[in-house]
Simulated assay, not measured.
Amino acid sequence: MMRGFPGIAEQAEAMRRHWPASRMRRIDERSAAWLGPVRPLMARYEIEIAYRVPHIVERIDPLGQQPKVRVLSPRLLCRDNDPEGRLPHVYGHPRFDPTLCLFDFETSEWTPFDLLALTTLPWSLDWLACYEGWRATGEWTGGGRHLQPVHAGA
């Protein structure tokens, strides 16, 4: 018998254990967002992890069903004409509320069976540590498959 995806209550309990400084905002019975502070290396960030639990019968679309992670503050800074792109490994326009690209959705590194507290949260910290290094050196050390960079004029 196939077990369903972890529900919001199960995700919330794991987040309370692993990220006690976060606050949960319930959107509806299958959706919630967690907001709170993180400090990967030097800087402190306020992030939001938004997630909607899919129905087990829905077509699994890893890109569409993955958690959405945004940095609320401080604003992520871009580097025009950088070989890595203005802001590497994000979805959406890098200057306007991008969401973090935390894993390769084509390789099933994350699925709706995973707990956000054990995947998305640590991957967000890793992304932010790589971001801090990239801002300091211009080199993205996070690996992964690069999305097409958005350069000046885009």
Score class of each variant (00 low, 15 high):
R3A: 00
R3W: 00
G4W: 02
G7H: 10
E10K: 06
Q11G: 02
A14E: 13
R16T: 13
R16P: 06
R17K: 08
R17F: 04
R17E: 06
A21K: 12
R23I: 06
M24G: 07
R26A: 15
R26V: 14
I27E: 14
A32S: 13
G36N: 03
P37K: 12
V38M: 13
P40Q: 08
L41R: 08
L41P: 00
M42D: 08
A43G: 04
R44Y: 05
Y45P: 03
E46Q: 15
Y51H: 14
R52S: 14
V57I: 12
V57R: 11
E58M: 11
E58N: 13
E58C: 13
I60Q: 13
P62L: 01
Q66H: 04
Q66S: 06
R70S: 14
L72K: 07
L72Y: 04
S73Q: 15
P74D: 15
R79E: 00
N81H: 13
N81P: 07
P88S: 00
P88Q: 01
G92K: 00
R95K: 14
R95G: 10
D97V: 00
C101I: 02
C101A: 03
F103I: 03
D104Y: 13
F105V: 07
E106R: 10
S108C: 10
E109F: 08
L118P: 00
T119W: 02
L121E: 09
L121W: 10
L121K: 06
W123I: 00
L125R: 03
L128Y: 02
A129I: 11
C130H: 03
Y131F: 05
G133M: 09
W134N: 05
G138P: 02
G142H: 04
G143Y: 09
G144R: 04
R145L: 05
H146S: 10
H146P: 15
P149H: 06
H151R: 05
H151M: 11
H151P: 15
